[in-house]
Computed example of a mutant assay.
Amino acid sequence: MTITYTLDVSTSKASSFCKLLLRWRGSLWKSVYKELFLWLCGYTALSLVYRLALNPEQRIIFEDISVFAYRYTDFIPLTFILGFFVSLVIDRWWDMFTNIGWIDK
């Protein structure tokens, strides 16, 4: 289903960008709101546990675990993972492009 944004983009006011960004149909927010809500709930829960439930000794252990996890995230660099992702996206695009029917050969 095609969603047109022509009327929202035709004016050059600051509010038109906000209206376009906060539009629900066909928006980025519609596709990521579940994951965003889950991430925010997890982050809030960890923050509340750290600030309210842990004593100072347990906070030091939690911080040490956090530093350990941060240091070992560099073993698999992000560019390596992004390379596989981009390769997958390009392969899918190329498969769709080669399967398009053309009038002449």
Score class of each variant (00 low, 15 high):
residue 40 L to E: 08
residue 40 L to R: 07
residue 40 L to S: 08
residue 40 L to D: 07
residue 41 C to N: 05
residue 41 C to E: 08
residue 41 C to D: 06
residue 42 G to R: 07
residue 43 Y to P: 00
residue 43 Y to R: 15
residue 43 Y to N: 12
residue 44 T to E: 07
residue 45 A to P: 00
residue 45 A to C: 09
residue 45 A to L: 13
residue 46 L to Q: 14
residue 46 L to T: 04
residue 46 L to I: 04
residue 47 S to Y: 09
residue 47 S to Q: 11
residue 47 S to G: 10
residue 48 L to H: 08
residue 48 L to M: 13
residue 49 V to A: 09
residue 49 V to S: 05
residue 50 Y to E: 02
residue 50 Y to W: 03
residue 51 R to I: 00
residue 51 R to Q: 10
residue 52 L to I: 02
residue 52 L to Y: 09
residue 52 L to S: 06
residue 53 A to P: 00
residue 54 L to F: 05
residue 54 L to N: 01
residue 54 L to Q: 01
residue 56 P to S: 08
residue 56 P to Y: 04
residue 57 E to N: 08
residue 57 E to G: 03
residue 58 Q to M: 09
residue 58 Q to Y: 02
residue 58 Q to A: 13
residue 59 R to K: 15
residue 59 R to F: 01
residue 61 I to F: 07
residue 61 I to A: 11
residue 61 I to L: 14
residue 61 I to H: 08
residue 61 I to Y: 05
residue 61 I to T: 11
residue 62 F to C: 05
residue 63 E to C: 03
residue 63 E to R: 13
residue 63 E to V: 04
residue 64 D to R: 15
residue 66 S to L: 14
residue 66 S to Q: 09
residue 67 V to S: 08
residue 68 F to C: 04
residue 68 F to M: 08
residue 68 F to Q: 07
residue 69 A to S: 09
residue 69 A to W: 08
residue 70 Y to C: 06
residue 71 R to V: 07
residue 71 R to S: 10
residue 71 R to C: 09
residue 73 T to F: 04
residue 73 T to I: 06
residue 74 D to I: 06
residue 74 D to K: 04
residue 74 D to L: 05
residue 75 F to Q: 14
residue 75 F to S: 14
residue 75 F to I: 15
residue 75 F to R: 15
residue 75 F to W: 14
residue 76 I to Y: 09
residue 76 I to G: 02
residue 76 I to E: 11
residue 76 I to M: 11
residue 77 P to M: 04
residue 77 P to K: 11
residue 78 L to T: 12
residue 78 L to R: 13
residue 80 F to H: 14
residue 80 F to Q: 13
residue 80 F to N: 11
residue 80 F to D: 11
residue 80 F to G: 01
